[in-house]
Simulated assay, not measured.
Amino acid sequence: MSVSRENLLAVLDAHVHPLIGRGLVAAGAIASAEVVGDAARVVIELGFPSAGIRDALAQTLGAQINEQLGLVAELSIGSRIASHAARKNLEPLPGIRNIIAVASGKGGVGKSTVAANLALALAAEGARVGLLDADIYGPSQPRMLGVANFKPTSPDGKRMNPIAAHGIQVMSIGFLVGDDQPMIWRGPMVTQALGQLLNETVWDEVDYLVVDLPPGTGDIQLTLAQKIPVSGAVIVTTPQEIALLDARKGLQMFRRVEVPVLGIVENMAWYDCGDHRDYIFGEGGGARMAAQYGIELLGQLPLTTSIRQQMDDGRPTVIAAPESDIAQRYREIARRAAAQIAYGVPGAVFPTIEISDD
């Protein structure tokens, strides 16, 4: 019995990867598929960076094709990352396909550490990545990425080239002011500075721009949500009830302005004490919050000395210990967030949100 292309496509569409949530054909992931003799030649293009899962996916699909159709599978798996802006009325920014906002309701939960490692994890998965440090009052990314003493160059006297750090493009107000220079600015000046950092940086065709927001739900968050084509937000929290209380406010703020929340990262979830785990800040808070709001728990990260040391040294965990369990957790978080953008962000009708001056 001969095997048709339709038979091959049926097998491919029957495979529902958990990060995609639908068959590969239905997801538009099949770039080409043909049967040539006793071989199935398939080119798959996923909508998110996927270096960490390609081999396993190829092995699984190859076995299914061989078992069900009796063909030898010749598979090529790559990524084609499209632009997904939540607000359809906002124009994409030059050189940027997608924007991921990393937010927290309160300070001290490790948001900037997560943002840096998330950006590096997306790059490790095969994406072109930028990182914008939007914390104007307390920029930390230059120090965390080991480029604190760098200064941006300009191609034309008007715009700035981003700083290259560990394979990603970085911009921060920290590159333009001294470490001990306070930014004594009111809200409008801060939002203007954010706009300049974002729009006057020459981003070089990044698939994802990760924006490290300051904690809270103030001017910068609202400006980003209302005027910039954000693809989705990641909420960082610890399991502690006080942190979760503020994280819920951040989540609700993004929902109010119709920016999809890609999921929650629970940081400092436990501390390994050798033979057991100590849940210093409580247990399961991130999972309960995710279930409460019907969103995904993107991942959990431990409280460890190594993460702090690596950030202080300017070499975040994904770079300093790429094979470690923690680095792999960051990469899984990156894949899940990017897959949410590609396949899991629902369309919406966006209301006009008015912020009064009172």
Rank of each mutant, 00 (worst) to 15 (best):
A290S: 10
N66L: 09
L120E: 00
D219C: 10
A327V: 07
V3E: 01
Q240M: 09
V236T: 12
A29Y: 01
D204G: 09
K249L: 05
V265M: 05
P155I: 10
L245D: 13
P49I: 01
R288I: 10
R143I: 15
D246R: 01
A348P: 09
V261D: 00
G110D: 05
A337V: 07
L303Q: 02
G284V: 08
S172A: 11
R335C: 06
T237D: 06
I20M: 05
A225E: 04
A233C: 10
T304N: 09
E266H: 07
I100H: 01
V349N: 14
I235M: 11
H15V: 11
V259E: 00
K111Q: 13
S104P: 03
R128I: 04
A33R: 03
E332L: 15
Y293W: 12
S83H: 12
L120N: 03
N199H: 14
G232A: 07
A337Y: 03
G62Q: 05
A327L: 09
M1H: 15
V206W: 00
D275W: 10
Q240P: 06
G216P: 02
V114W: 02
D212Q: 06
G232I: 03
G347I: 13
A27V: 08
N98T: 13
A342F: 02
G157Q: 13
A134C: 09
T317N: 08
G62V: 04
I242G: 04
M311Y: 00
T304W: 04
Y271F: 15
H17G: 03
A321E: 15
P142N: 06
L75P: 03
T352K: 15
N199W: 11
S104H: 02
P322K: 06
S231F: 05
I65D: 01
S83K: 08
I20W: 05
G28K: 03
I235L: 15
A339N: 04
P94G: 09
L57T: 03
R5L: 10
R248E: 14
A63S: 11
H15P: 00
P18F: 04
G105P: 02
G216M: 06
G187R: 10
S32P: 03
A82F: 10
D313R: 11
G216V: 05
F254S: 02
A247W: 01
F150S: 14
S306Q: 15
N117P: 03
P155V: 12
A10Q: 14
G286Y: 01
F281K: 00
Q169Y: 08
R128K: 15
V25P: 01
I319Q: 04
G284F: 04
V265F: 00
I163Y: 01
I184E: 10
G78S: 15
G108Q: 11
V202L: 14
Q64K: 13
P260N: 05
L262D: 01
L61H: 01
M160W: 11
L132S: 00
L93R: 06
E266L: 09
G157R: 12
N267K: 07
V206Q: 03
R97H: 12
Y279T: 04
P215L: 07
R186H: 12
I326D: 13
S83I: 05
I333P: 00
G28E: 05
M144Y: 01
A26F: 08
A124G: 06
E332I: 13
G216D: 08
A342Q: 04
P229H: 06
R288L: 12
L303A: 02
D13K: 08
L69M: 06
Q309C: 09
E74Q: 14
A334L: 07
I319C: 05
G284A: 11
V318H: 05
Q221T: 07
